[in-house]
Design a protein around this nucleic acid. Structure first.
Lengths: 338, 338
DNA sequence: CTGAAAGCGCTTACAG
DNA sequence: CTGAAAGCGCTTACAG
């Protein structure tokens, strides 16, 4: 019922079909024209024998495995499951499979994984961070290893394909929304600033506030790390601020959710005391109390599109960068001050 | 800096070391005794040339890939990331890699994946459900494909290694806890009952209630599906019950969290109106409002242990079933009625 | 303990 | 369009 590995070989098929192994290979891989009659014979034989090409022998010649590595920091951070799901669904629909690697954002792990994957003969590598170093990525690209950067924009790497949401614009939307609600004192809990996504969300937000003449002293920035724990801590810091803000923009939902927890513990009513906006629109954001107003990225779609570019590159086409639009999702974590 | 695939071959190493390729192979794979002198020469040559064996050529002979498939229903369900993380960490520490497959609990997807993985020459398969059919698993086992069942106990499959929490006992603990708090009317939102984990949690809970003479009519069971959406719906059903219960035991946290959302929308105070106990102790359970009291499983550890058994089996040792103890984690979702 | 050689199951120039 | 044959880079009996 389910094929056991390595039983019938291409030679068996060739015999059954009365052709040479070369011909079988050609029809199966569509690597050369074969007459309709022979093609038919081969297909029938393949079917009858339930032939499945040996992946090793195939790979030994072609150097391809039909598997792709996805390097993330931590699948336990709720942003990544949605992303990984998008990647996996697309990839598997194309007959590829996905190897998942968690690095905890440590460059040495990232490096170790890249070597492991390369040694296994992976067909392509998908990164969600650049912590491994731009030079490494460049040398990979130089060696013609297909690479895609997911969720960030590379800054100094020519020719690296990427798929992102317009993070700067997302920051702007958050700023405008809060401004419209009548807020005057703001805190931004940022992502790590060695990361372009973190920097751009910050820049969009701050630029917008300044454009509308919010004074420097009413804009506080606290750098954090995109994790729930980081958000929890930054909430503590926020509570120590001298004039408290009325609005807080978190660079992602995970941090906002961590902060919500802290506020709940301190019995601080949201949105009465603070209006809160997140970023990402991860699944749980609608399930916390109060449901989180956030700037949405289509995470699943980013995964799918990245996978699409990846496979295009692997199969010899030219990949191209994709930029998606962020969108405001209004829920219950903000209040109007006017 | 990072090895490009397939540059230097075993022959290059052999030449450099002044030995035969066979000898190189033997020292690298520790597959036969080689004299210390030659061993040393080989190791030096390997190191100098930065030799990495070609995975395809190796696999062509050995039929092993050092990769393992993990079949789950949906990585987006917060139980699975923690599990997958445990598996991945262990597996990668042993030089293996993890291929992740989401089936959405659909038998046809599960089957498709198993075939895909087998055709790729995977070394072993880890299942989190038996939806593919016990006969399929049996035939896999029969073909000597290493298999491990994670988080459930197989019922009719001789020789299938598994790693689980004692689900029955977990149900008992939930029952006793709620009883001690003075509750008298109970609802159980169960997992799917075609699944032993769902059935056992239910059985432990119900048996305990009966043991303490709770009357039939005060025990309502609503079958659900382990998802947040399912939990949300079951909360609606619960609200339609004629005498409302005072305590609800959810067969997992994801459902409890979905239900919490519904109660929040309806402005029903938890734990004032209902006392709620979950199962699993997933990460977000401590972050919802109120933080969820739950029966904890060591999910990450289950992942690691399962991976350990998997690799033992792959490497020719005998795997053995492991049963872990559940534990009550008291947070803020229950109140005492006495 | 060590090496020469066959073979794993494919793919792909090379002829025809 | 088709086939015979070499070769991908290893491993493993088989001799010695």
């Amino acid at each position: 019922m389910i094929a056991k590995k390595g039983k019938v070989s291409i030679i068996d098929v060739a015999k059954k079909a009365g052709v040479s192994p070369a011909t079988v290979s050609r029809v199966l891989n569509k690597t050369a024209r074969v007459s309709p009659e022979l093609t038919k014979k081969v297909l029938i034989a393949v079917n009858e024998l339930n032939y499945v090409p040996d992946p090793f022998a195939h790979g030994l010649k072609t150097k391809r495995t039909r598997s792709i590595g996805l390097i993330i920091s931590d699948i336990t951070n709720p942003f990544f499951p949605e992303l990984a799901r998008g990647v996996e669904d697309y990839v598997s629909s194309m007959g590829y499979s996905l190897i998942l690697c968690n690095t905890d954002a440590k460059p040495e792990n990232e490096k170790r994984y890249v070597e492991l994957l390369l040694n296994k003969g992976i067909d392509g590598l998908m990164f969600t961070s650049l912590r491994i170093g731009e030079d490494v990525i460049k040398s990979l690209l130089n060696d013609e290893v297909p690479c895609v950067l997911v969720g960030r924009k590379p800054e100094n790497i020519e020719g690296l394909v990427y798929v992102v949401t317009d993070n700067y614009k997302g920051g702007c939307i958050a700023g405008e929304y809060l401004l419209n609600l009548g807020h005057k004192r703001f805190v931004h809990i940022s992502g790590p600033l060695d990361n372009s996504a973190g920097r751009e969300r910050l820049a969009g937000f701050i630029d917008t506030l300044k454009k509308y003449k919010v004074k420097e002293e009413n804009i506080i920035i606290i750098e954090s790390d995109f994790t729930m724990e980081g958000g929890y801590k930054s909430a503590e810091e926020t509570l120590n601020l001298k004039p408290l803000p009325t609005a807080i923009f978190f660079a992602n939902d995970a941090m906002a959710i961590g902060a919500l927890q802290k506020f709940w513990e301190e019995k601080i009513d949201i949105p009465e005391v603070f209006s809160i906006v997140g970023f990402d629109n991860i699944k749980v954001s609608s399930l916390v109390a109060p449901p989180l107003t956030t700037i949405s990225q289509e995470i699943y779609k980013i995964g799918q599109l990245s996978a699409g570019e990846m496979i295009k590159i692997i199969e010899g086409e030219k990949g191209e960068p994709i930029i998606l639009e962020p969108k405001l999702i209004e829920r219950r974590s903000c209040r109007c001050l006017r």
